[in-house]
Design a protein around this nucleic acid. Structure first.
Lengths: 228, 228
DNA sequence: GGCAAGCAAATTGTATCCAATTGACGCGAG
DNA sequence: CTCGCGTCAATTGGATACAATTTGCTTGCC
């Protein structure tokens, strides 16, 4: 997968990183030829990359209008967090049951990386916070689960980019350590509780900000009057 | 989504149906221009559809080699069932909590459809059995969850196509009814237990059939002798 | 008879080209 | 002054053409 280095993969990866690091902000347009000439490839490539990003829920495309960085509505955000909670609970259950031998080392090493950028709210911090969860999922050895977790984590990054003022990474790192410890102690209930609290805090921080809901979701409540 | 009727969507849908109904069997090649001229569209469209199918795990593509209907290994199959169990457990939890008003009617109506084709092991039976689970997921109102369930259900259909002699739909229909009843009674534990048993039976049936494993996975056990 | 090198066919990877749809601007009527 | 309509630029949707890579087969050599 990684060495299957077609141009489409490269563009896809770059765009993905640009989106989750908030270089490309939600709602921003992504014209195919602009992106294409930026990377020095043709529209065909960009198009394929955009199709994949759309499947991952990171961009929305509207027919004959173009692609935009996705703007998840609050409703969508809730759904994503709901799924994420369920998936990560499964991850924890599996890890308590069968954490690979080098697993804890990798996790602790990652947490140290996170602590290394503690305080800075830059893009690196955001990416690392997400990658902790992705790493956790990969350690289950279940590629399907890992892919899904990766997707929802990325979309959550996008949500935080929209609805949270700051990523507040300091509490996250602590909770990451606590999760590791609970898993090491084979305490499913505690690990799940911490994880739920962790995600709940993140989700709550997002929802408390009274950012305007997406336009389409607002108008959908008024559209019925014109439906006849 | 449905009225965004681009050609890519159409081809994607058709190929998907052809695969899960086993008209296209696992391992079968899907050359872009063959498929293209079959549907009367250009390779561009087919390629987009194939990219999407690959993301859904229904086809494998190898660089400069082409696309093949996926042949999930037993390992992959186990992973998919693992994720499916977790996702469907979440579906049940959510439905017990917030089943929409017309939900039970839709479910019972669907089960009646399934009973209508009872006994026939044709493609229709396979599709309906899967759609029950998809419908269940859609009733949660969570589009993300619904999409993931839909994906794993489809991949499970593919797995059954490879590893199970018959789809044995008669027990499935019964268990579907039992799940509905348990949800109606708001009994999460029972509903989950039935669902796990249901999926376990399906998975077990797949593994007990000693169908040949995928070629690469078989040969990997013999390759060592020639490896030097 | 088996094996390696090389050639030819098939298939994908990428770029370019034409057509169709959309949004915006400007003009004129009320 | 505002609203509706027509034209036009911009952008995507789709098809075709060319290049690169792989595969299988043929051929010649050992």
């Amino acid at each position: 997968m990684s060495d299957q280095t077609t141009l489409t993969d490269a563009v896809h990866t770059l765009l993905k990183r640009a989106i989750i690091e908030q270089a490309l902000k939600p709602g921003m347009r992504l014209p195919e030829d602009t992106v294409g000439e930026q990377f020095g490839v043709s529209r065909t490539i960009v198009r394929h990359a955009l199709v994949r990003l759309q499947n991952e829920g990171l961009v929305d495309t509207r027919r004959n209008r173009g692609a935009f960085v996705a703007e998840p509505s609050l409703e969508e955000a809730k759904q994503i967090f709901e799924v994420r909670r369920a998936l990560e609970a499964e991850v924890i259950r599996l890890l308590v049951e069968r954490m690979p031998s080098s697993g804890f080392d990798q996790l602790e090493s990652h947490v140290r990386s996170e602590q290394g950028v503690k305080g800075k709210d830059g893009p690196v911090s955001i990416r690392l916070a997400g990658e902790f969860h992705t790493l956790l999922a990969e350690l289950t050895g279940n590629a399907v689960l890992s892919r899904y977790v990766s997707e929802v984590v990325l979309r959550c990054s996008l949500i935080m980019a929209m609805y949270a003022k700051t990523h507040s990474s300091e509490c996250a790192v602590d909770e990451h350590s606590q999760v590791i410890e609970a898993i090491r102690a084979r305490d499913v209930a505690r690990a799940t509780a911490i994880m739920n609290h962790h995600l709940g805090a993140v989700a709550g921080r997002a929802e408390l900000e009274n950012k305007p809901d997406s336009v389409s979701s607002i108008l959908s409540r008024y559209g019925k009057e014109l439906a006849s």
